[in-house]
Design a protein around this nucleic acid. Sequence first.
RNA 1: GGUCUUGUAGUUCAGUUGGUUAGAACGCACCGUUCACAUCGGUGAGGUCACAGGUUCGAGUCCUGUCAAGACCA
Length: 905
Amino acid sequence: MTQPELPKAYDFKSTEPRIYEMWEQGGYFQPWNDPNKPGFDPDIKPFVISIPPPNVTGELHLGHAMFVSMEDLMIRYHRMKGIPTLWVPGTDHAGIATQLMVERDLLKTEEVTREELGREEFVKRTWEWKKKYGGIITTQIRRLGASCDWSRERFTLDDGLSRAVREAFVRLYEKGLIYRGPRLINWSPGLKTAVSDLEVEYSEEEATLYYFKYKLQGSDEFIPVATIRPETILGDTAVAVHPDDERYKKYIGRNAIVPILNRAIPVIADDYVSMEFGTGALKITPGHDPNDYAIAQRHNLPIISVLDTAAKVNENGGPYKGQDRFEARKNMWADMKKAGLVIKTEPYRTTIPRSQRGGEIVEPMISTQWFVTIEPLAQAALEAVRDGRIKIVPERFEKVYFNWLENIKDWCISRQLWWGHRIPVWYCPNGHMTTGREDPTQCGTCGSTEIHQDEDVLDTWFSSGLWPFSTLGWPDETPDLKYFYPTSYMETGYDILFFWVARMIMLGLEFTGEAPFHTVYLHGLIRDEHGRKMSKTYGNVIDPLIVMDDFGTDALRFTLLVGSSPGNDTSLSVKKVEANRNFANKIWNVGRFVISAIASLDHRPSTIDNGQLSIVDRQKWSLADSWIQARLRQLVRDVERLFQNFQYGEAGRHIYEFLWSDFADWYVEIAKGQLQDEESKARTVETLVHVFDTALRLLHPFTPFVTEDLWDHLRNAVRNSPVFALAADWPNALIVAKWPEPGEPEEWEESKIADFEEVIQDPVRANRNFHAEKNIKPSQKHGVTYVNPYKAELFREYLPTISALSSTDVEQSFVYEQYKPSGAVTSLVVGSTEIYPILSGMKRSEGDTARLEKELKEAQSHIERLEKLLAGDFASKAPAQLVAKERDKLSAYKETAEKIKAQLK
RNA sequence: GGUCUUGUAGUUCAGUUGGUUAGAACGCACCGUUCACAUCGGUGAGGUCACAGGUUCGAGUCCUGUCAAGACCA
């Protein structure tokens, strides 16, 4: 049976879409145990991940590539383990981000603002925008190979999820955990909306500290005060000093006069004021500063707001009314200067609150907003992690999580936007509020029909906080919710631990009574090759789509997965991706070799009579066969252990190492010889198939495309060959092939590995090294004499293998237990083996002697070190096994040293 | 100010119950290719594991401190 020739290089461009199509059409992304289908077994525990929903109108960036690669790996691993596996995909409406995008576009294309368009029309346009561009991100996620169940795709503004949001709001409202009221919040003047504490970023910047005089009423005395924001003087309602401050004690209880406005305000005493800092006196602006707000609460001070929603001075600002906050600052200071109230200004480094979106300076303002009373929710969320119901990987983030929840403030959930879930509360002219699961037609208190709905929408994170269960049908007790909830892992970046993860935990516990997942795995952020943040200004942004075009999805995935460890940032360079493209190509070519070997079995070999495969008969294995099988068994164990510990990168490196260094560089080279021999041919093919098949399975979660495609070719080749029985229980696609099960370590593994190293690897390396050193070309075949007192038999048996791998002449080579060369000939010593290349006219040179001396020195230093070690407390206190190991090492070094000494005589 | 992370080869990083003079990739130097692969093979150079103490028979790994870079929270 002839196989169609595979191309010399792996062609990811044509392969990836074809394979993805095959998976999706094959229904492999759907859980095999499905509560909506016949034959469902509720007792089998599923593995579930909810995708961190990307912005519906977003474009793929490396952050997406990272989480998709990581989650797909987790999903594929569990799927191959035979567990019913569900990965729920979906997108987020991303209130501010999307609204801004649409607004910008409308302004550009139609030159209209959203206000001109009106709310209804604007929301309609945004939906159109979503329909037009909403598919881009999911298409791109598919390109990454994401094996999520697209039949269960959700969007946060879908009817179902909107109903969940409504239900959640109403329940919290009815429980008294949601309230509305004026509070000091963070206001974004550009976006004209409130933002939560989390959406404010603090950056350290150069600012100016303004010192001025707060005159006391009816006197020329004054208290010196400093401020960063002079315009807020307009809203001052007190001057505060420390109660023990000798300088200002006498003024407590008197009145001070607000500059320009000439309002009288009290001088108060409060412990909060630091005597050492600045002038030791503080102006209190409760309307525009959180600390001042707290002080005002303690002292029952009035609160004056001096800015409007655009951060322009309002009617409380007297002459500055209508001026922008920064303009008013300048003008006011000039006026104060004229009035002789200015002391000085000095540069000052301070933290400035800026909007996470857009970067404008956020203004603390008094505003009527909706809040969630967070304390009871936070307590429950703390408890869930403390008692181990939820585990965070890596563990150190638990501390960060505790810290945040222990100091949490109420969550401002209303946003003055149009794109989002509108707050389900209606007001009547009598000031009553009505909420409910259905839209009311009249006021629930007074029955008035003149009701209108709250204009605001909910914070985007309110809906994403419900994501793990809202996507499964909550609040309905759907079959999906019953079976797939709680989910298993929550995998995401540590940057949204508070924004998203903590809120999912709080809301999940509140609404379902259960932790929404049992494990939180946090990955790091991706930086450029020098560890810098990627940003458009630096111009160091790597576009995953271009990388995939150039090197393939597998290469990108492998790079991200292997280059990262839990919770740590990772640097990505295109070079690394290129190297991993080479890895994909390497596997491809190893596959071509294995397949061609299978195809070369043109008749039924005697070794596989009666369907009995020789693979199970270890007696017939060559040393190389045993070695690669032992290494494979080790690999399977290592990978399993590392996966259990979330060490995915390390697992990937092990597989890479095995495939490239062990399998391709050694076993395949040896197999070439074994395939020439009718006696060993079939057994070798079986070994090649078994090892390669297993390795492909292990690698599949990392690089799904190339492994799936190769495995398909492999299976076809096996099925059409005399060794067809090897693939008897293989399924139709690698994606659902059985994950290799680790076996207990067996006695023979270590000894075979040791033999292989001593009899094959070490001599071959020694010969190659010698050839490189002497510049001997592979075509210059020569014989070699090997001398080993313990394993001469093995050396004799594998002399052809050693010779083939080291380009020496097997016919002219010999093996002895004992041997005394005549005269000073070239020699190599490795372990207990002496190697004498047989070369006419090749006498020992100075270089050879120098090399031997260097090796002797090395051996002697080891001997010295080990003798010292074994003479000390190590021998009595260390585990016996370890001591024995070191003793063996010592005697081996001694033997080597003796042999080298003999050579040098 | 508080908490945390990182500091290992020229570069980017591994190195998870402490086990014995440290690994990979890329880069570099030299050699090589008829039959899986130049997206390749072979050989080699390159590190006092930031620094100083401590615990231990034994420390890159644990503890303390210092220095440097960074993150988060105030």
